[in-house]
C-alpha cells in the first residue's frame, strides 16, 4: 500500500505530466496499467501521475514500420489486426504471452518495457526487432534504441521526469521470419525464459539473425554470439 499517497493526478498534456514528475519537493511517480504500482508497499511516494487521458493509445503502421503508443494495453496489441507479417506476428505473440486476459487488459506497453517486470514478455520481441522508444523530457523528444535502454536498467537511462511515449519498430528486410517462445510452469506464470528470434535470408543463406532472451538475466538481452 502507498501509505502516504496524498495526490492522484490526471495531467492533460505530456509536458504537464513531466512538470509534476519533476517536482523536487514531492515524490511523484507514473502510473500506467497499475499492475505493479497498486501492489507497491512504499511510504515515500506522495503522488501518482495517471497518463490515462493522454493520447498514448495507438497502433500505427508508418512507412518506417510500426509505432505503438506507450499506454496501449498488451491485450490491444495481442488482438490488433493492424499488426501482421513477421514483425507484427512477433509483437502480437509476445503480448499474448503476458499473464491472462484480465492482466493483459491492465498491462501497458510502456510499463512493460520500462519497468522490466517478471511478466515483461514484450522486451525480447522488441529487442529482436531493433526497436526504439521515443520519450519526452523538458519539452523535447528523444529516441532511445532498446539495445541502449537495456544496457543498464532503464531507470538509469531515463532522466527524472522523463516519460516514454511510444515505441517504434522498423520494418523487417524481405525474406524475414520470426518466432517467439515462452517457457513457464503454467501459461499464466512468469517466464522461466523468453526467446524471440528474427532471421533474414539472402541467397538462401542467413544474412541476419537476432536472438533476444529475457528472464534468464537481470535485464532482457540480445545473444551476441551464435554457434552455428
Amino acid at each position: 500500500m502507498l501509505k502516504n499517497l496524498a495526490n492522484y493526478y490526471f495531467p492533460r498534456s505530456l509536458d504537464d505530466a513531466g512538470s509534476i514528475l519533476s517536482e523536487k519537493q514531492t515524490k511523484n511517480v507514473i502510473i500506467a496499467g497499475g499492475t505493479a504500482v497498486s501492489l507497491l508497499r512504499d511510504q515515500t511516494i506522495d503522488g501518482l501521475v495517471d497518463l490515462k487521458y493522454l493520447p498514448l493509445v495507438f497502433i500505427k503502421e508508418t512507412v518506417a514500420g510500426y509505432s505503438i503508443g506507450a499506454m496501449t494495453t498488451a491485450q490491444e496489441v495481442f488482438q490488433s489486426s493492424a499488426l501482421s507479417g513477421p514483425v507484427g506476428d512477433l509483437i502480437r505473440k509476445a503480448a499474448g504471452n503476458i499473464g491472462s486476459t484480465l492482466i493483459r487488459n491492465s498491462v501497458t506497453v510502456g510499463g512493460n518495457l520500462v519497468s522490466v517486470f517478471p511478466w515483461s514478455d514484450l522486451p525480447p520481441a522488441f529487442l529482436a526487432l531493433d526497436a526504439a522508444v521515443v520519450s519526452r523530457h523538458e519539452k523535447r523528444n528523444r529516441t532511445i534504441p532498446l539495445m541502449k535502454l537495456y544496457s543498464t536498467h532503464p531507470r538509469n537511462i531515463l532522466k527524472h521526469g522523463e516519460i516514454v511515449t511510444e515505441i517504434k519498430i522498423p520494418k523487417a528486410s524481405p525474406n524475414s521470419a520470426t518466432a517467439f517462445t515462452k517457457f513457464s510452469k503454467t501459461k499464466n506464470d512468469y517466464a522461466i525464459v523468453d526467446v524471440a528470434v528474427r532471421i533474414c535470408l539472402k541467397n538462401k543463406k542467413v544474412f541476419e539473425a537476432a536472438i533476444a532472451l529475457s528472464a534468464i538475466s537481470k535485464l532482457p538481452m540480445r545473444a551476441r554470439q551464435l554457434i552455428a
Binding site: 492522484y8 502510473i31 497499475g34 504500482v37 497498486s38 495517471d50 484480465l102 492482466i103 487488459n105 491492465s106
Partner: peptide, 11 residues
C-alpha cells in the same frame, strides 16, 4: 475485464 485488486480506485 480487469482484476480490481490491482487497479487503483482513483484511476
Amino acid at each position: 475485464p480487469r482484476n480490481s485488486c490491482i487497479v487503483m480506485a482513483a484511476h
